[in-house]
Design a protein around this nucleic acid. Structure first.
Length: 260
DNA sequence: ATGGTAGCGAAGCTA
């Protein structure tokens, strides 16, 4: 089974390159973040026509939004209302066989990395704290994917030194990511297949003159699996090329092949 | 130190 995760920064604006991903990579399960559309306006027919007839969609007007589209049936879906804000930042499905797929869009956190003056950063830290508590109690074999908006290791950013005070790579965030990983024994499947110290990015700003030449990227998108599923991933690709596609997202897809 | 781009939805906010 092949699973893809992708922050597409508007599903409606990105249909041509979603089609390109489906045609060239043929994922069975597609986890999208930042769909930026209300559920009644979600392009269901587009996915249905391409065989993704099983859909778990959770959107809201204008911002955020996640969706998991699948060619293989799933047994149920759900979501958690993180921080009690009603944001569409998480949707889960249960695959036949029992494994859950949790699709996340963690808050970006604004610009100022101080929770005392920036409520968006405080929200991000609270969200991560709730994920830690949830992970401690998590029993089911699970796959957690999505835009976690944290680049944990020095090799996950273009310049560790220059990003230490930039939201996404501050010590308080990377520490939280470490505690999140430990809380369930999450295995970072990207690093299983592309170990440190290889530099890896999944996001490049729209604001660069030449994203590829400057290559100032960050690894914000993740595929984590339960210890019980360790060894079930047979391959994993960060599709850097997609950043150069026509009218791209600022994030690229991650593809993981699972023996299950 | 600053500003650069993109999407939503129709001005400014978020990223």
């Amino acid at each position: 089974m092949r699973l893809a995760t992708w922050n597409i920064n508007s599903v409606r604006a990105r249909l041509p390159i979603v089609d390109q991903l489906i045609t060239t990579q043929a994922p069975d399960v597609l986890c999208l973040q930042e769909t930026k559309v209300q559920d009644q306006l979600f392009p269901r027919d587009f996915f249905r026509e391409r065989g993704y007839v099983h859909m778990a969609i959770r959107g809201q007007k204008g911002h955020h939004g996640v969706a998991t589209l699948s060619r293989v049936p799933f047994e149920g879906s759900g979501h958690i209302d993180w921080c009690g804000k009603g944001d569409a930042r998480h949707v889960s499905i249960r695959l036949s066989g029992g494994a859950a797929v949790h699709n996340f869009y963690v808050p970006a956190g604004g610009d100022e990395p101080d929770p005392a003056v920036n409520e968006k950063f405080a929200h991000k830290l609270s969200f991560l704290d709730e994920m830690i508590a949830w992970s401690k109690d998590l029993k089911d074999p699970s796959i957690m994917v999505g835009d976690l908006n944290v680049a944990p290791a020095p090799e996950d950013v273009w310049s560790h030194k220059q990003l230490l005070k930039v939201v996404s790579h501050t010590p308080v965030e990377t520490d939280a990511m470490g505690r999140l990983q430990a809380a369930h024994g999450w295995v970072d499947a990207v690093r299983t297949h592309h170990p440190l110290p290889e530099k890896l990015y999944s996001w490049w700003s729209y604001r660069a003159r030449d994203w590829s030449a400057s290559d100032r990227g960050r690894r914000l998108d993740h595929v984590w699996i339960s210890p019980a599923l360790d060894g079930k991933t047979t391959g994993l690709t960060i599709l850097r090329d997609a950043r150069g596609w026509e009218k791209p997202s600022d994030h690229v897809p991650i593809l993981v092949d699972l023996d299950m």
